[in-house]
Amino acid sequence: MATEHPTATVPGDQTRIHNIGYRSYDGPRLGRAYARRSLYSQSLRGAYGLGRSAKSKVLPMLLFVVMCLPAGIMVAVAVATKANELPLDYTRYAIVLQAVISLYVASQAPQSVSRDLRFKTVPLYFSRPIETADYVRAKYAALASALFILTAAPLLVLYVGALLAELDFADQTEGFAQGLVSVALLSLLFAGLGLVVASVTPRRGFGIAAVIAVLTITYGAVSTLQAIADVQDSSGAVAWIGLFSPITLIDGVQSAFLGATSAFPGGAGPSNAEGVVYVLVTLGLIAGTYGLLMRRYKKVGL
């Protein structure tokens, strides 16, 4: 009866495979600010699916194309018909395409922060030289930059097209600059709101739904109330109601100070004094969402 014993492992056998000589590292260690920048660029790339699976690239890239396509068509038409102005103001573009922007925030804010919470990567980051504030700033800046790319790219297309169509250079440059300031504010505001909502929902699906809800329900409610107020001839109320949804906030700021025509019912944007309130509320919301994010991440220890 010749039994075969399972052969015991020869000592050193399993380690030999890996034995390829260890090289130590004595190059530079760039510290905390560099780590924060690395997190920023990784998150910004991630917001367009770069460095992630092919599947993750589809939606952000698609939304980017959808966002730029109308601008391309407008430019083509303007050049072909030798029009003397663009069919849509620079400041109006983002307002008209707000659904695309909302969808982008709703899909990418959870992608940026919920994943880190859900897969517990956040504590691992905090075992590196960075601190809570670095994490929040990197994530905030990355999503705001991604949104700025999304919203400024079509404006650039319009601007380049306008110059090709030989429209008035000074006019176009002014409009383009106003548009850029407006979408920069919009990017900061939407990024902050999206991140706050996403950071309290580790489940990505809930995060997406919650962000969409915050952006569209407020807009729906505000524009309905504004329409009612407009019918009842209280145009003062129209302006104040507009403070309660993110996109109407941006609309108010830009029609008061950035030469935009208001999308409010009756085209009645806020007066200059009301506009100051709009600016303050917008900046307050941006600062407030940053503060909330800081508080949220203070609690995420190891």
Binding site: Y25, G27, P28, R29, L30, G31, R32, Y34, A35, S38, L39, Q42, G51, R52, S53, K55, S56, R115, D116, F119, K120, T121, P123, L124, Y125, S127, R128, P129, I130, L302
Partner: peptide, 28 residues
């Protein structure tokens, strides 16, 4: 530091993830 709990995002490769963590530790 190697945590006791899971800490790995499932949709990136080991290479992507470890490169990122190396940079988070300050490596160029």
């Amino acid at each position: 530091y190697m945590p006791e709990h899971d800490c790995l995002p499932p949709d990136v490769s080991a290479t992507e993830f470890v490169v990122h963590m190396a940079r988070m530790s300050g490596l160029p």
